[in-house]
Simulated assay, not measured.
Amino acid sequence: MADNKPVLSISIVTPDGRVYEHQGDFLVVTTAIGPLGILPKHVPVIATLKVDEVRVKYGEEQDRIAVNGGFMEFSNDTATIVADSAERQSEIDVKRAESARQRAQETIKQAKASHDTDSLARAEVALRRAINRINVANH
């Protein structure tokens, strides 16, 4: 990025603080209506994010961050992602994520058996988050 070509500034924050800050050539997020790729000079956008990975490409490198919901605001080559929670690929504890996945699957079974729709909904979100963390960690 030393060749003075336009770059993106990307920041991911959670209620616990800043999780990620970097410059990149290309940003990929999953919005409520589908995937969105952002290059420098993209039009401004505000979007709700799904539980999925965020990818930041810079040169030949790529960072992956597990983002668990939130929203993104992009303007003037700056993307700010405000997420419920987020973890960089290198910081994901796969064993903990696997345990969370197993707990969520068991809770889903119990909630379906007892027709507990509130517990079922919470467990399904927990399952999506655990699977997202596992997928990001295994790339």
Rank of each mutant, 00 (worst) to 15 (best):
residue 139 H to I: 04
residue 84 D to A: 09
residue 106 E to D: 14
residue 138 N to A: 13
residue 11 S to E: 14
residue 130 A to T: 10
residue 103 R to V: 07
residue 3 D to M: 15
residue 92 I to T: 13
residue 12 I to S: 07
residue 69 G to A: 05
residue 122 R to C: 00
residue 86 A to R: 06
residue 50 K to W: 00
residue 121 A to H: 05
residue 124 E to L: 14
residue 96 R to N: 13
residue 7 V to Y: 05
residue 14 T to E: 10
residue 68 N to I: 05
residue 116 D to R: 11
residue 110 Q to V: 11
residue 24 G to K: 12
residue 85 S to V: 01
residue 69 G to S: 09
residue 73 E to H: 13
residue 51 V to C: 02
residue 81 I to V: 15
residue 71 F to Q: 10
residue 54 V to D: 04
residue 72 M to I: 15
residue 138 N to F: 03
residue 6 P to Y: 04
residue 9 S to H: 10
residue 117 T to F: 08
residue 1 M to R: 14
residue 102 Q to C: 00
residue 137 A to F: 03
residue 57 K to D: 04
residue 129 R to V: 13
residue 23 Q to F: 10
residue 46 I to C: 07
residue 20 Y to V: 07
residue 92 I to Y: 01
residue 12 I to D: 08
residue 3 D to Y: 14
residue 29 V to D: 05
residue 64 R to N: 09
residue 136 V to Q: 03
residue 115 H to N: 15
residue 109 K to F: 07
residue 2 A to V: 07
residue 59 G to L: 09
residue 120 L to I: 03
residue 85 S to T: 14
residue 4 N to H: 12
residue 62 Q to M: 11
residue 23 Q to H: 15
residue 38 I to K: 00
residue 134 I to K: 09
residue 64 R to Q: 12
residue 94 V to I: 15
residue 83 A to R: 06
residue 120 L to N: 02
residue 98 E to M: 06
residue 122 R to M: 01
residue 74 F to I: 12
residue 55 R to L: 08
residue 53 E to W: 09
residue 96 R to F: 02
residue 127 L to R: 00
residue 62 Q to N: 08
residue 23 Q to D: 10
residue 135 N to I: 02
residue 10 I to W: 05
residue 78 T to F: 14
residue 99 S to W: 01
residue 134 I to C: 05
residue 85 S to Q: 01
residue 83 A to G: 06
residue 112 K to W: 00
residue 32 A to M: 07
residue 124 E to Y: 04
residue 11 S to F: 00
residue 38 I to L: 08
residue 128 R to L: 10
residue 81 I to A: 08
residue 26 F to H: 09
residue 121 A to G: 01
residue 57 K to C: 03
residue 122 R to W: 00
residue 89 Q to Y: 01
residue 66 A to P: 08
residue 111 A to G: 06
residue 95 K to H: 14
residue 90 S to L: 01
